[in-house]
Design a protein around this nucleic acid. Sequence first.
DNA 1: CGTTTCAATATGTATATACATAATCGCCAT
DNA 2: ATGGCGATTATGTATATACATATTGAAACG
Lengths: 246, 246
Amino acid sequence: MSMIETAAVEGGGSLHQRILSDISEKILSGAWAPGFRIPFEHELTAEYNCSRMTVNKALSQLAKAGLIERRRRSGSFVRQPQSQAAVLEIHDIRIEVEALGLAYRYERVARQKRRSSAEDRGLLELDAAGQVLALECRHFAGKRPFAHEQRLINLAAVAEAAEEEFLDIAPGPWLIGRVPWSEAEHRIRAVAADRHIAEALDIATGAPCLVVERRTWSAEYPVTQVRFTYAAESHTLVARFRPSQG
Amino acid sequence: MSMIETAAVEGGGSLHQRILSDISEKILSGAWAPGFRIPFEHELTAEYNCSRMTVNKALSQLAKAGLIERRRRSGSFVRQPQSQAAVLEIHDIRIEVEALGLAYRYERVARQKRRSSAEDRGLLELDAAGQVLALECRHFAGKRPFAHEQRLINLAAVAEAAEEEFLDIAPGPWLIGRVPWSEAEHRIRAVAADRHIAEALDIATGAPCLVVERRTWSAEYPVTQVRFTYAAESHTLVARFRPSQG
DNA sequence: CGTTTCAATATGTATATACATAATCGCCAT
DNA sequence: ATGGCGATTATGTATATACATATTGAAACG
């Protein structure tokens, strides 16, 4: 036990962590191809000279990560690579702008409290009518407009937003931290700038723009719907993915 | 123990699973706000009448999921909602087209085996020169072109690709299952169609297009780089995210 | 020959226990 | 006051054990 434990400490983490990374290394390098039956728990127990619980912890995590599939009585098998899923991080715009080394500025263009229209209800996926707050904002990177934001907030879910003017703080950061969100849906697509967007972003009408729409729920209640429009040159979404965590 | 265990079975999963979902429900509903100190392990142990290991398993998973932060001697705390990370699923194009209820057709436009140019090496992030396979393909939904694909395959990593004509099978599905991939990077942006793309997708020059670029590595070796271009009307990426699994 | 039954097996979950580790609190001496 | 020091506390990891559960393979039986 002592030697292996030492190796585990040298490796940086705990023993079950080391077992986990050893196995995912074998899978990701291709040494253990899809369909391959990885050693039984009791074999790994012998190999690492540890208890079954420790091996089990590692294998359970690998199964939850989708790298292996476990079958009772049969063993654990390397899974076929499945869907091309990527973890896409969508940051706060201020952070994004500042990461580019540019000065960030925020501007509220319009704010309207109103009874939800049919269109509003469609965007928020609301069943019944109610008060909503409609906002239009611009985010600047240096002197140039970087993104245009069009947002609806469901006042039934976030009553305190009715009192906020959003002159100095953007609705995104305001909402985060105030409203716990349980679910979000993103839609990403390319569109041609209409006249309104073209003016707001200081680009030509018809120029390609990247649109990111997000709907957010908190425990079944729709909270907000927002549509960010970026001028094509100004923005690229980057997503990195690893099948397992190291 | 018996009553709680029964409740757990009714809840669908195991006891640690039930503890996990109880707590994430509290967090996501906002009942336990960010910063709130959730009960100590020994308190939950008493509440659920189970061992500390069982509670620990649930809390460890919550910590790994990012919902709580654990501090020795202090306890476990509800975390501030952090990054807006979303699980973006990028499927095989055939699947996407068929999900729309349209007939899928694949066409190989061009194929060239060549020594990597400086541009190729930049796209693949290759250090040294070597053989690459350059492919150009089109994917159809019904009669209309749906996506244009431009791909480089690093033949040093996938030698067998040199023998494949890719007339009947698209390179994506061919590569998946053959090459285990350990890492991928996506870049998503909007562009205006140039003449070549406009012709390939049968749209107007300058029309907005969604571009998804993907680079794939297998155990440190660059495998392939691909650029999909979609006509704006034809495509929206959808990503759904929950901070925890239910 | 087919079907039922049963034992063997690998994983799934939970327990009680032990010791390690990090952080905090309060006491004490300076 | 204040700076160090040890006790306390909560989490982190690992062990040995136990029983549940699903599945397979083989033996027993009609």
